[in-house]
Amino acid sequence: MINYSDCIQLQTFNSVVGQFLNGAVLRRANLSGANLSGAHLSGADLSGAHLSGADLFGAHLSSAVLRGTDLSRADLFGANLSGADLRGANLSGANLSGAHLSGAHLSRADLSDIDGGDIRWDKNTKWDDIKGLDTARNVPEALKQQLGLS
């Protein structure tokens, strides 16, 4: 549906539907490679969804459920993931530069080879048993120190 609407004009799906996806239930949906930049997905349930290679640049994903979601190679540059549940998510190779992770739950998430420049987090961000942060690029020194990686 996204690709068909974009045949009419690029960004048609995002400009018409993207703003109405708050709280949507998209469990196990296949959205690999989808262009959802700037989409409003706050509180959406995307658990187990396939978003590998998706463009989520500046997307609003605060309090979204992304448990076990495949976000490998996704562009999450500047995305708002505050309070998001990312437990067990695959974020390997994702671009998280400028992403807001305040209060996010990243336990058991795979952060291998991410670009972590300028990510924002707070004391409520949960990093328990994360995987692969040692292979990430541009991880802020303060985060490395907090997690005992430097």
Rank of each mutant, 00 (worst) to 15 (best):
S15H: 15
Q19K: 12
R108L: 13
L66D: 04
G83V: 06
G117R: 04
L66E: 08
G78D: 00
G18I: 10
R108G: 00
F57Q: 05
L81E: 01
Q145C: 08
H100I: 15
L56Y: 05
N138P: 06
D128S: 08
K126H: 05
F77S: 01
F77H: 09
A64G: 09
R87E: 10
S37D: 03
Y4G: 07
D85V: 15
S32I: 03
K144F: 03
Q146R: 14
T125Y: 06
A79S: 12
Y4S: 15
F13H: 08
R137S: 07
A74R: 02
A99F: 01
L46E: 11
N35D: 15
A99S: 03
H100D: 12
W121P: 01
Q19H: 03
A39C: 14
S112L: 05
L61Q: 05
N30T: 12
L96D: 00
G58Q: 07
K131G: 04
L61C: 12
F77N: 06
R108E: 11
K144D: 04
S63T: 12
A84F: 05
S92H: 11
L86E: 13
A84V: 08
A29M: 12
H100M: 10
G53Q: 09
A44K: 10
S92L: 02
D75C: 01
G132I: 02
L143K: 00
R73C: 10
L10F: 12
S72N: 12
H50S: 07
N95R: 05
A109P: 08
L96P: 00
G68V: 08
V65F: 14
A64F: 05
L86Y: 11
D115N: 00
M1P: 08
G103I: 07
V139K: 00
A44S: 09
T69H: 09
L31V: 14
A39K: 07
L46I: 04
R67F: 10
H105N: 13
M1A: 13
L133Q: 06
L149C: 07
D118N: 13
S112E: 14
G132F: 05
E141H: 06
D134W: 11
A136G: 07
L41A: 11
G98M: 03
S102Y: 11
G23D: 05
N95T: 02
L147S: 09
L46H: 05
D134F: 01
A39N: 13
D75S: 02
G43Y: 09
H40W: 13
Q11I: 03
L61F: 06
G78Y: 01
H50E: 05
L61N: 05
G23V: 15
R108Q: 11
K144Q: 07
F20L: 14
L147M: 07
S97C: 05
G18K: 12
H60D: 12
G38W: 03
Q9R: 14
H40P: 06
G83H: 14
S37L: 10
R108N: 15
H60F: 09
N35V: 14
I119F: 04
I130G: 04
D134P: 00
S72G: 11
K131W: 10
G48D: 10
L96C: 00
D113I: 01
G103N: 08
R27H: 08
D85T: 04
